[in-house]
Design a protein around this nucleic acid. Sequence first.
DNA 1: TCGTGTATTTACCAAATGGTCAAAAGTTTC
DNA 2: GAAACTTTTGACCATTTGGTAAATACACGA
Lengths: 207, 207
Amino acid sequence: MPNAAPKKPSRIQQRNRHLILDAALDVFSAHGYRGATLDQIAEAAGLSKPNILYYFGGKEDIHVTLLNQLMETWLDPLIEMDSEGDPMTELLGYVQRKLVMSRELPRESRLFAGEILQGAPRMNPHLVADLKPLFDEKCAVIQGWMDAGKLASIDPRHLLFSIWSTTQHYADFEAQIMVLLSGETPYDAASDTLDRMFRNLLQPEAG
Amino acid sequence: MPNAAPKKPSRIQQRNRHLILDAALDVFSAHGYRGATLDQIAEAAGLSKPNILYYFGGKEDIHVTLLNQLMETWLDPLIEMDSEGDPMTELLGYVQRKLVMSRELPRESRLFAGEILQGAPRMNPHLVADLKPLFDEKCAVIQGWMDAGKLASIDPRHLLFSIWSTTQHYADFEAQIMVLLSGETPYDAASDTLDRMFRNLLQPEAG
DNA sequence: TCGTGTATTTACCAAATGGTCAAAAGTTTC
DNA sequence: GAAACTTTTGACCATTTGGTAAATACACGA
């Protein structure tokens, strides 16, 4: 029996940690790391500040925990892109999955965006260790599809950038979009527009 | 002679206000509003904190001044899009101008992004008063071009969103891009990719 | 060069904020 | 139901931070 056995967390512990992380996601994604206060998180979680510090080592600990969780969620849709599948289907499917994530997980998208915007002070190691290898792998897959004539040839790296930016934009710049569309929900039209956009871009020249 | 004549600002006043705003742009764009401190701004400007407060009413005043200036810069490239010009040329030109702005003014891009990301607490009025009318006007222009068969038909609003997101991405997510491209500068390849992307998207179906 | 308005600094302050600690309240186990 | 534990709270602290006030240094026109 290993010494480091962390003794399964109690029911109450599980509930409260989850409560805190959910509240923290609200607050951090809305105000950024420095803009968020432990008191705000405490209130949003319905717990007292010292109680929060009973479950987490500190503000930074909460933030880091959130960021770690986020990384997995964030890579998932890209991982799902199957090198064995039909190239156009796979890529357009990836676009749609990313768009759904913006709609369903806008807080996560904004948390991520805020972290990157400020130079990824806490996430850089994750980017290097997790994202970069996956990115390289999937770029190679896409390049393979293009070399095989299944897709039009463009720089796969910038293709991915454009997919990320166009889809995440709907979560990250929601405040602007709400003003410009007068509150109308953008996702249906976005889905169509992005599908056409990437379909046209990737259609190989000679059928 | 108007009573409110503000007595032209002295040489030293002009220099210091400029110094402060430039330093503040550095600090605000790197750390966000709450993350920035007056001391940081003071040090970056090479002035003492009370001296900074001699020139500006307070932290918020500096931020607002910056945001006001920014709005003009930000709308310029869109204003330049000429309804009389060749549609494809005008739109692709707009894309390139926005991309140049990301390269030349990344701090401004990040300041803007950070403000929107947090719900545009200080900029919402500007968005409604300045951006929205311009947005509507230019959407109508683009729609006109499409109706005349000069461009493929897509929702002009989402077309603009995709232009903004893809171009600003290179400034706002620079930290991520640096990791993924191993420090290689992305702008040449981005220029090509985006040109092809929007050219394909906007090419009318039947020549 | 002197005097007047401008610019700058030194020394502070009050509020906010991340965090601690010991005591109290609950739970669980035997 | 008492012992042993986990959880929660109330009071408190040190630091950071936006901001102020009065005194000092400086610029510049007469």
